[in-house]
Design a protein around this nucleic acid. Structure first.
Length: 199
DNA sequence: CGTAAGATATTCT
DNA sequence: GAATATCTTACGT
């Protein structure tokens, strides 16, 4: 069952990113409460949709409410939900959640006992929940996904996004205020470390 | 707490 | 063939 209202993902990326804070997300019964998200849209140079539709990001231009899963740095998975039915190419990246359901499975997959860091980051979250390419293009309101609405209004703080080299001035990162399960605390982000790959 | 290094799928030239 | 990337972990201070 899905506790989110029908038009939840119809709205713009910023609104959806904010609304996702406090939502409980499970994949095959494993997961927790979302505490950190980031918004992206087609006008955003940091977004995968910025250069238009390409092979691999088709889900981002598909119907809203679907998952867009991709690999980053060749090693880690990232989970997004497509949103904004009037502006194709918008999505919300799920960056961190507070583990609550089936902790043992997540700890086993991560090989880590520390609850605070189990899902504190996009790659960690995906590893803990077993998210991979199989889930790319699947609807968020069907198995294995299970999303249930947040209880009441959540205190949300916004700040600069992480891990991108452009568009860093857009404060489209959203966190549950005071949560201990964030990937990084707000305000402590030193601007664009960026490129340094090869020597 | 900060800086540095690692390792690979996908995309572009 | 080369460059890029919505990170993570490890280690030095």
């Amino acid at each position: 069952m899905n506790g989110l209202c029908p038009g939840f993902f119809d709205r713009d990326a910023e609104t959806v990113a904010r609304a996702l804070i406090g939502v409980r997300m499970l994949v095959d019964g494993v997961g927790g409460v979302i505490v950190e998200t980031e918004a992206y849209d087609a006008a955003d140079p940091a977004s995968h949709s910025f250069r238009g539709e390409r092979t691999g990001n088709a889900a981002m231009f598909g119907p809203v409410g679907y998952a867009y899963v991709h690999r980053i740095y060749g090693l880690h998975w990232c989970l997004n939900f497509v949103c904004d039915k009037d502006r194709p190419g918008s999505a919300v990246l799920v960056r961190a959640l507070e583990p609550s359901d089936d902790l043992e499975t997540m700890q086993r997959r991560r090989g880590l006992a520390d609850i605070q860091r189990l899902c504190a980051g996009p790659g960690r979250l995906c590893q803990a929940l077993g998210i991979d390419k199989r889930l790319d293009g699947l609807p968020a309101n069907q198995a294995p996904f299970a999303l249930s609405a947040a209880r009441g209004v959540q205190p949300v703080e916004s700040g600069a996004r992480i891990g991108i080299s452009v568009g860093t001035e857009t404060p489209w990162r959203f966190c549950l205020a005071g949560s201990r399960y964030l990937s990084r605390s707000l305000g402590k982000i030193h601007a664009a470390p960026a490129r340094s790959a090869g020597v």
